[in-house]
């Protein structure tokens, strides 16, 4: 506003910047510190217990079955754990800042409200990334150890000199343990958690408490998983679907994201590859949802009376 610099202003004063990634980074970093110091990572122990315990139980299965179950359980658990973490960690952020009035001190600094929200979300997304990474490492480690184990077993049975048949079996083991679909599959699980986090942030801008936020988002979570089935049923019901029905379904899918789309676990377990097109489409959609929810959150938050 003041075109001419005020001579009375201290020289160290940076001019106001309308948008600053480093401000967002500072808030994101602070949010991450908060969540880590609240010891949210402890739940990862539960995950470790689950998959290690699970693989100990399966010694009597054939190796194909074993790897399938291990992947099914691990990826399913990863999906549920990251989703829960996203919802619970995000739900408490805003109410806590409002209650402790830390929000006043932050927004009394030259911080645009959008940057505050983006920083909060950014912090949770980094947290989710770390959590997903840690779980993946654990999962891959268990899978790797089991693979080596099974191979050692085959070699021992073959009596030191691996014959044609044994080599073929080993190749089979390797194929069913690791598949290229794991990486995009886990990426999609992470994206789904990001989406839920953005949704939770949006709900928490108008919710009265974090409990309310959690209940609403968990409800959306279930509807989001069921709606694909519901839609199929609806669309199958009559051949001549009116545009009203279609419009309604489009509305529903905006409020309740089709979370089933982010569920690629079945494909991975079956050993199918994930088509690049499908992966890109799903990721794009996930990012779009994150953007839309962040904007919606900003829309409500910027008009909010603190």
């Amino acid at each position: 506003m003041n075109a001419a610099p005020d001579p009375a202003a201290p020289p160290s004063h940076p001019a106001h910047r309308g948008f600053s990634p480093s401000r967002i980074a500072a808030i994101a970093r602070n949010t991450l510190t908060e969540l880590i110091r609240l010891k949210v990572f402890y739940f990862l122990l539960l995950f470790a217990l689950l998959i290690i315990g699970n693989s100990a139980f399966m010694l009597r299965f054939s190796f194909q079955e074993e790897f399938q179950v291990l992947k099914d359980v691990s990826l399913g658990a990863m999906s549920i754990f990251t989703s829960l973490l996203a919802i619970v960690a995000t739900a408490m952020l805003l109410p806590k800042d409002v209650e402790d009035r830390t929000l006043y001190t932050i927004l009394a600094k030259p911080v645009p409200r959008f940057e505050y929200l983006a920083g909060k979300l950014g912090g949770v997304l980094v947290l989710l990334f770390i959590a997903t990474l840690l779980m993946s490492v654990l999962f891959v480690a268990v899978l790797f150890i089991r693979e080596k184990w099974v191979i050692a077993e085959i070699l021992r049975e073959a009596g030191g000199t691996p014959n044609e048949q044994a080599l073929e079996m080993i190749a089979n083991v390797k194929k069913s343990a690791f598949s290229g679909a794991l990486v995009p599959g886990i990426a999609i699980i992470y994206l789904k958690a990001c989406l839920l986090s953005a949704l939770t942030l949006f709900v928490s801008t108008f919710a009265s408490s974090s409990i309310f936020t959690i209940i609403v988002v968990v409800a959306v979570y279930f509807v989001g998983h069921l709606q694909a089935t519901a839609r199929e049923y609806w669309l199958a019901a009559g051949a001549n679907v009116s545009w009203i029905t279609k419009g309604f379904l489009a509305m529903v899918s905006l409020i309740f994201p089709d979370l089933q789309m982010f569920n690629l676990v079945d494909d991975i377990v079956a050993g199918n590859d994930i088509a690049l097109g499908l992966f890109l489409r799903t990721s794009g959609l996930g990012l779009l949802y994150v953007g839309v929810y962040l904007l919606a959150a900003h829309f409500i938050f910027s008009a909010k009376e603190l």
């Binding site: 001019a15 106001h16 009035r101 006043y104 001190t105 009394a108 600094k109």
Partner: peptide
Amino acid sequence: VESREQVGFLPENPY
């Protein structure tokens, strides 16, 4: 937002 560039605030009972 720019107006807050030049101001420091201490709210009541700050946490």
